[in-house]
Amino acid sequence: MMKRGLKYVFIVLMGALLIYHSIYFKSLRAVKASSEGLDMDSYAKNYLFKLIPQYEADFIDINFLRTAIDENASKAFANYAHAASDGDFRYFMVRGTGLITQKDSDYVWSQDSQQQRYKLATNYIYGTAARDAAGLIVVDSFDNTMVFNELSEKINELIRKEVVPASAKLATGDSVQFTGALGLSMKAPKLSEATIIPLHLERLQHKKE
């Protein structure tokens, strides 16, 4: 009787040991951890309205960038560009001033004192330029790239809601100041063809009548 009892205890212990080593528990909470708690709206607002103005002086003047690319493109990319992914395309955060020379429903064109024209998007705000150009948000801070990409969409949405409406008041001849993100190919950097996503757009002066 005693022997049989011991036998059952042994079988139960062996079974428990096998089950313990066959199953690996991990809470979904632990798996999803940090990204779940991320308040995407606040993060995007903080980035666009606090961090970007704080670093504005560090962003490259667009005319200086043009000269830098003309003189030594690879050095210009190494010094001023950022990108989340490893590839040919890189993003620059630029600042500039100019006169509005043309405007349609999708873009405004600003011309600076050196007669260079730059195209600012005022309708189709998409892509990752606004997120990546400053190099202030890095993918390694996120549990997964979906959250990282969702943040890009939140930033673009804020730009559409809070930044782009300023362009509605602009008229040809107005002088403007802007901070914006643009992307260039390292193999063929054509600044004049780039579209600038505005992160800050401000009318400095009405056109002179």
């Binding site: 798996v31 951890a33 998409y126 996120f142 549990d143 997964n144 890009s152």
Partner: peptide, 25 residues
């Protein structure tokens, strides 16, 4: 392909699918 963790893998080398699909869009 990605796993949803920063600590489970030593490193994750991933295609930037999102940016490419912006261009495809």
């Amino acid at each position: 392909r990605e796993i949803n963790s920063r600590t489970a893998a030593t490193s994750q080398i991933l295609s930037d699918s999102y940016a490419a699909c912006v261009q495809l869009g």
